[in-house]
Design a protein around this nucleic acid. Structure first.
Lengths: 209, 209
DNA sequence: ATAAAAATCGACACCGTGTAGAATTTGTGG
DNA sequence: CCACAAATTCTACACGGTGTCGATTTTTAT
């Protein structure tokens, strides 16, 4: 069991291995951006981190585990920030804020996000991680839609169904746009926001004509 | 085997290899649904088709080529049917028809479609195939949006931008829903259609309340 | 019937993965 | 400083899947 050894004061927790582990994850992120998931070999990661394959297997049981840890580290970042602006703000403002935060995350970690999506179907752990993240988003979108009065449809959870679809729209759009350029991502985000607002029945603020 | 052995008249072009090739592709589709892309080995495909690995490599140069051919065969099916209802019909009817056709394709070949998406980033040929298909869709959606008068926005191609986003929305939603059940897919399709209509400014026909 | 083309097979080399055990470093208390 | 245990690293190996090659058998056309 990972127990806390009698840590002196506060700094006893910085084992050499912790640094290596971070180095491995960092290298992995670079390689992911560089050559992609399947082209990236365990040997590459080890070499980038300054150790041999054998040593890497001391920290992670497999290539998948490395990437899983990297994805976890990345989306965790998102979960915390998500809790902040949960369903507090005014709808239009909440939407804009959420989109902006998401754009920033994709700008900073696009390759990791894209890889997570790509391997979600083949690496169960990553799939679950991603699904949980999506559920968070869907819940947030649902909240906004309901506040805008969307129960209209026959089924009781019309808002949830729409939220799910809108979530996938954003995911997939960001997936593609983040591959092109930051400008593209920003523009795509605006388009998504527009459709989201329209679907919620909220007219875009400064709409000419 | 339902084959015409008499090479009389016109049927001389039915080489034995053509049958095998189809058998390989069929087996591949079954295995894709059964164990997924990476779990599926070239040996598995060969065995399912009743030949050895070595023989399979006479027809296809690699596992990727097999899957590429399978994807091509599947989406080709779509291109033809797409040309029929190009931009002819009345908007609302055109949308409904397109969605229904797409639902049917995903019901019949869900695993192939999902695999195509999954490996699009790692198998360039499949990526191109899929992008071309998406472009077809985007063009069709753009046509509908413009007919509904969507140039409103500042940029000249607001309709195209929205169409792209809507296309990805449908793709991703179908990807997930087709994994669950036919009912789910049908329901998801309805939700997508609703958002599409709303984005086009066309009120859904039988809307209560 | 026969020769070219088409199709099939078995064996081999290559590469990446994951494991095992030995060897080395690091931290700690006597 | 020394010894000992835990943490860390290395080298070597076995396994499985891929793709290639040359030999061999089956089809097909004449």
């Amino acid at each position: 069991m990972p127990d806390q050894p009698p840590t002196r004061g506060r700094r006893g927790t910085e084992r050499k291995g912790d640094v290596r582990e971070r180095a491995i994850l960092d290298t992995c992120e670079v390689l992911l951006a560089d050559k992609g998931y399947d082209a990236m070999t365990v040997g590459d990661i080890a070499q980038g981190a300054g150790i041999t394959r054998g040593a890497l297997y001391f920290y992670f049981g497999s290539k998948q585990e490395v990437v899983t840890a990297l994805v976890a580290r990345t989306v965790e970042h998102l979960w915390e920030r998500s809790r902040a602006t949960a369903a507090a703000d005014e709808p239009r403002r909440a939407i804009a804020a959420a989109m902006q935060r998401t754009v920033e995350l994709w700008n900073a970690h696009g390759p990791v996000m894209r890889t997570a999506i790509d391997v979600s179907s083949t690496v169960p752990e990553i799939g679950e991680l991603w699904d949980r993240t999506a559920d968070l988003f869907i819940a947030a979108i649902t909240a906004v839609l309901e506040r805008a009065g969307i129960r209209a449809g026959g089924e009781p959870d019309q808002a949830a169904a729409m939220a799910r679809v809108l979530c996938w729209m954003i995911e997939r759009t960001f997936y593609h746009a983040s591959q092109e350029s930051r400008e593209n991502l920003q523009a795509a985000s605006a388009t998504c926001e527009h459709i989201w607002l329209t679907s919620a029945g909220l007219h875009p603020p400064g709409q000419p004509a």
